[in-house]
Design a protein around this nucleic acid. Structure first.
Lengths: 102, 102
DNA sequence: AATAGTCAATTATATTTAACATTATAGTTA
DNA sequence: TAACTATAATGTTAAATATAATTGACTATT
């Protein structure tokens, strides 16, 4: 019933990400319909991804990236270096499996 | 009608990404239900994201990352450095807006 | 002439919700 | 120190609702 609203700022990030994916495809000279065919998705969905629409599932993003010659591993770059988190962690010298608020 | 299948390899990538997001949350001592509340999503969806389920929308991923203190910009790391693509590009000294297959 | 974008209807799937079950932690006690 | 306990945090399920994805036909762009 309640609909989570996406911030303009976050929307821009996704749009930029979509553009980067599009550029990666263009550099490889692969038409959208080939990416669609390789990933098993519709051409529509590929268009949505390159636009950076928030509604597309991350699995579909991953499959498109994969169709771009193994670029799905690029997703591992997300949160890889968590500098702020590491700092907090180092101050405490432990990382629990659950949180207990003080 | 046709259902795109996700490769085990790609599934693992998403699972790892989910774990990284979970770790970022744990380092900050924020319970899941707070992330849910901040992002406007259900607790369910936060759980799905930390498991790396492919079905969750990238918008929801982004909102959870944002709730983790501006980590949505981490998404910009995807396809940022496209080495292979750059190489192709440099060999041609141009980047067209559309593709013409040979 | 091939690639890319738009639209609307249909079908498929995700998300929320709520109630309940399980697990991990902090603080206590033996 | 180790086990105990209270409870917060996490996990699970299913039904109802909301939304995404496909499809096909069409338009526009390069």
């Amino acid at each position: 019933m309640s609909k989570a609203v996406i911030l303009p700022q976050t929307e821009r990030i996704l749009a930029t990400m979509g553009e980067q994916i599009k550029l990666a495809r263009l550099r490889r000279h692969i038409p959208m319909y080939i990416i669609a065919s390789r990933s098993g998705l519709s051409r529509q969905t590929v268009i949505s991804i390159e636009k950076g629409l928030p509604s597309v599932s991350i699995g579909n993003y991953a499959m498109v990236l994969h169709a771009l010659q193994g670029m799905d591993s690029e997703l591992l770059n997300v949160c890889k270096d968590d500098k702020m988190g590491r700092t907090i962690q180092d101050l405490e010298l432990k990382t629990p499996k659950r949180i207990r608020r003080r």
